[in-house]
Nucleic acid binder design. Structure first.
Ligand SMILES: [Mn+2]
Ligand SMILES: [Mn+2]
Length: 312
DNA sequence: GCTTTAA
DNA sequence: TTAAAGCAACGCTCA
DNA sequence: TGAGCG
């Protein structure tokens, strides 16, 4: 018996950028309260995928899958599924512990790979901050700004401007995006010339300066209970093996929000993270708006700031 | 969502 | 024949 | 040495 009911189709074949693959259960409700189906998810990634793929290309990818929608079970997936089509590139990476089996990551080097994974129920995409060829050297540093209750998105916005100010003093540019939840991510595009631990130390050092200047608004404390009402600068998110929600990834939250790059001007004028979702972001991209393009095209060097990243 | 393993 | 089970994990910090 | 953290 068809679990979706009689007369409801299960699988149709589609072609994306010359790749043929089946898509299933298009009518399944992934966001039941909003009435958004799996088809809405796939349509979103079809529209955003050609932009998003630039930020995923040649990066080992972890996905978070929700095969039965946001209220169903979920799981992280690092190893590329055995049944993935052979046109999806993969990269085998040995684990830190020798003797442990390597992980064969998917690489979303083309839009169709995003769509194939989304059909598997992948809602969230989490790429490494480094790329094939320079895997040990991230090409962006991230200031992950997490407001702790009762602090809000607006507090994260304030913190983002303090990050911008601190970077400006160093002559560096950062680019903000909404996390899709209540936080903000500020990306600093860099040449792949510092290791993960050096990047982490750099972000830590800048974060300490900000925390020292605004101690009642910013915290670097790990225990969640001690962050109350402040914005946590999660510099450790730059450590090896950690990932952050990709630019333009969907989040499994009410309203189907999208982690969306914004200009500093938009951030200053005021916005709600929920205004960027799977229905609105495609229109924004259609108008050619992608404030993150410099993250791809304008790497900066952190070599002059040795004091901020070298091992003490 | 799909494959593998257990009942 | 159907039903589970699996599908990640790692370095840092504080107690 | 172990638990919390993301
Ligand atoms: Mn965050
Ligand atoms: Mn975080």
């Amino acid at each position: 018996m068809n679990p979706a009911g009689p007369g409801v189709d299960q699988t149709v074949w589609t072609r994306v950028d010359g790749r043929d693959f089946p898509v299933s259960n298009l009518q399944k409700l992934f966001w039941p309260e909003e009435g958004y189906s799996k088809a809405h998810l796939l349509q979103y990634y079809l529209a955003a995928g050609s932009t998003m793929v630039q930020y995923l290309a040649r990066r080992p990818l972890t996905v978070v899958r929700y095969p039965d929608g946001i209220h169903g079970g979920s799981f992280f997936q690092k190893n590329c599924p055995e049944n993935a089509p052979d046109w999806i590139a993969t990269l085998k990476i040995p684990r830190a512990e020798p003797g442990e089996s390597p992980i064969r990551y998917c690489l979303a080097n083309e839009r169709a790979a995003i769509l194939w994974l989304a059909n598997q129920g992948a809602i969230e995409f989490h790429p490494w901050p480094s790329r094939q060829g320079t895997l040990a050297f991230p090409d962006w540093a991230i200031f992950d700004l997490d407001p702790a209750e009762p602090a809000t998105f607006q507090d994260a916005v304030q913190a983002a401007f303090w990050v911008r100010q601190a970077l400006d003093i160093l002559g560096l540019r950062g680019y903000p995006k909404t996390s899709g939840a209540t936080g903000i991510h500020v990306y600093v595009p860099v040449y792949p010339e510092l290791t993960y631990s050096q990047i982490t130390r750099f972000v830590h050092a800048v974060a300490r300066q900000i925390q020292a200047a605004f101690p009642d608004r910013i915290t670097l404390e790990r225990p969640v209970a001690r962050r109350k009402g402040k914005v946590y600068i999660d510099y450790l998110q730059n450590a090896p093996g950690k990932t952050i929600a990709a630019p333009y990834t969907v989040r499994p939250l009410p309203g189907a929000p999208v982690s969306t790059p914004v200009t500093w001007q938009e951030l200053a004028r005021g916005l709600l993270p929920t205004q960027f979702n799977i229905l609105t972001v495609p229109q924004r991209l259609q108008q050619g708006v992608d404030p993150f393009r410099p993250v791809l095209n304008e790497p900066q060097s952190l070599l002059p700031f040795r004091k901020l990243w070298q091992q003490e």
